[in-house]
Computed example of a mutant assay.
Amino acid sequence: MGGLFVAIGDSFTEGVGDWDARHPNGVRGWADRVAKQLSKADASSRYANLAIRSRRLAGVVEEQIEPALAMHPDLISFYAGGNDLLEVRQDISLVLENYTRAVERLVSSGAQVLLFTGFDVPLHPVLEPFKRRNWIFNDNVRQLARQYPDSVTLVDYWTWDVYDDRRMWDIDKLHMNRAGHRYMAIQILNILGVRHQLEFEPFGPSERVGPVQSVSRDVEWLRQWVLPMFGRRIRGVTLGDGLHPKWPEPFLPADGMKKTYRRRRRS
């Protein structure tokens, strides 16, 4: 495929859940995996990733879009808005309006734009009210893909039943784990028509969990992840505070990502 691939967005694109201390910010993720395979198809392929966890749509638009377009990418991935949908008080119509304007800006650059629907995560009943927002958001994403068929490639994440398996998710139940990111990379490469060497091994039979153990896990999940998440939102604190983009400048993944990161840390 060649050219320059730039990824922008939040934790989904940064790679949260696919933990690897050998990569910047301690995560790898689907975008790094896609970039690596693009470089195997064409060693001249370059890559940059400006995504930072917890960024809301406005932050992605203000901090990432213009710097990304200034690099003159051939392919740009855009996933943002998920953190906005989890806000207790949120005007969904305003989110959709801002998202649409962002896509229009990306399309106007001439780059091929990769858009994503959000997955219909099997949430605990305490978070169920947020799911309707996700459905509305996804309908808007699909409409934009139909509006710009020559410029937008849609990754309809919402329709992939494999993510119904909890073993595709990290312990927080909101981010894909290593298996989830790997499968995402495979599907994106297939959608782009890029030959690759990634394989996904199906899981064996799932573990059977009794009702008492299930309730205990839910209580622990609420205590460790949900309550702290909403607490941070009330305080205006995010997990992305103090973090920098993983790959702020285009580089050649063919030179080795871990090797490139080690060189960067030494400089």
Rank of each mutant, 00 (worst) to 15 (best):
E199F: 05
V215D: 04
G210R: 12
S206M: 03
P248T: 00
E249F: 02
H244F: 04
T238G: 01
P245A: 03
V209Y: 08
S206Y: 04
H244A: 08
V237N: 00
P248L: 03
K246I: 01
F200W: 14
M229N: 13
E201C: 09
E249A: 07
G210H: 14
F200T: 09
G231L: 04
R235V: 10
M229K: 13
W225P: 00
Q224E: 14
F230T: 03
F203T: 01
L227W: 15
S206H: 07
R223N: 05
K246G: 13
E199Q: 09
S214Q: 13
G204K: 00
V215S: 08
G210L: 13
I234R: 15
D241S: 06
V215E: 08
T238I: 00
W247H: 02
V209W: 09
G242C: 04
R235E: 11
R232P: 00
S206T: 00
E249S: 10
P211N: 06
D218R: 07
R223A: 10
R235F: 08
L227M: 14
G242T: 02
K246L: 06
E220K: 15
E220M: 15
Q213H: 15
I234H: 08
V212I: 15
E249M: 02
Q197H: 07
V226L: 07
W225T: 04
P211F: 14
D241M: 06
E199W: 03
R208S: 13
R208Q: 15
E199P: 05
P205D: 11
L227S: 10
L222V: 15
P228T: 10
P211M: 11
G236F: 02
R208D: 11
D218V: 09
M229F: 15
D241P: 02
S206K: 03
S216M: 14
E199T: 08
V219I: 15
G231A: 07
